[in-house]
């Protein structure tokens, strides 16, 4: 058991001193990690907030379908069922003609209201209507046209087309961002594993000696893995700092919203901590994977 702890202790000690002794190489590996993680962090901030906006906007988009005057209670039930069968429909709310008229009248001032009621009385031209809430990502246009095909529907329309277009635009920005991040990450991981390979190449003498005196593969590998993890952690320091202080600053600077009150930013408090955790984990994983495989080449017995 004490040998076990000695072994673990040595992995950490050697890993730590490896970073210190090969400081320049460790730093160059760490800066590759830093660049990647910073990009990932920016992307995550953007992406999570976009998700939030999307949800916000989606709550406000509805399809409205007005009914023909001839529809009776039976028709209304049939139409309701037909609407609910359409893919992407979440919830349907019924409004009577009177409710619709009241809503319309409500938009005017006292004089206007009185005037309207006087002119129309009970003979107003409003239709009864269904208001349809859609599930996220549903295609409003498609749903509206499906609803329009149902017998007894007078007219359909959907609100927030501008919002939908914007959502689509932001989605493509996010999609493009994702590709960019993937490409940059691949590049950075390549750089990292290359630097770690260089670090290890510079030490193949060390590895050769370890092998010559009969160190097991695990005993050779793990100090390097710890070193890789430490480099990953080192590389995540700056991105974590940037994330926490940068996001808090940005949030304050923008007053908690992006452009309009319609788009509130995610509150910094637990958010930056989650982001930081993701970044630290990513740094550790990159360092671990990079060093694990870089050292493998030197551990293979070629006989």
């Amino acid at each position: 058991m004490s040998k076990f702890f000695r072994r673990i202790g040595r992995y950490f000690k050697e890993g730590f001193w490896g970073v210190v002794r090969h400081g320049a190489m460790a730093l160059s590996s760490a800066s590759a990690v830093t660049i990647t993680l910073t990009i990932i962090s920016i992307f995550l901030m953007f992406s999570f907030n976009l998700d939030q906006f999307t949800r916000e906007i989606e709550g406000t988009v509805q399809v409205s379908a007005t009914l023909e005057y001839e529809c009776d209670g039976e028709d209304e039930l049939r139409i309701r069922d037909a609407i609910l069968k359409i893919e992407g429909v979440d919830k349907v709310t019924y409004k009577t003609r009177e409710e619709e008229f009241d809503y319309f009248v409500e938009m005017y001032d006292a004089d206007g209201k009185a005037g309207l009621r006087e002119i129309y009385g009970d003979q107003h031209p409003m239709h009864a209507a269904y208001y349809i809430n859609v599930t996220s990502n549903a295609d409003l246009k498609m749903i509206a046209s499906e609803v329009a095909k149902i017998e007894g529907i007078y007219e359909t329309s959907y609100g927030g087309e501008g919002a939908v277009l914007l959502m689509d635009a932001l989605d493509s920005v996010r999609y493009g961002g994702m590709i960019l991040v993937a490409a940059l990450s691949a590049l950075a991981i390549f750089l990292i594993s290359n630097t770690i390979k260089l670090t290890i190449y510079a030490r193949n003498k060390e590895i050769a000696i370890m092998r010559a005196v009969g160190a097991s593969n695990a005993d050779i590998r793990f100090p390097y893995v710890i070193e890789g993890i430490l480099i990953g952690l080192l590389g995540s320091l700056v991105p974590v700092g940037l994330t926490i202080f940068g996001y808090i600053y940005l949030y304050r600077f923008l007053g908690g919203v992006l452009l309009t009150q319609m788009w509130p930013l995610i509150a910094p408090h637990p958010f930056v901590l989650y982001l930081s955790a993701i970044l630290v984990a990513a740094g550790v994983i990159v360092g671990l994977v990079g060093s694990f495989f870089s050292v493998s080449k030197y551990l293979r017995w070629k006989r």
Partner: peptide
Amino acid sequence: RNIGVVFQDFRLLERKTVFENIAFAMEVLN
């Protein structure tokens, strides 16, 4: 571990002292 090897080119670790170089062989065996 049954066999020690010595080469023409010494193969010492330049960044380690004499003591550390020798100790290294034992440290890696924990």
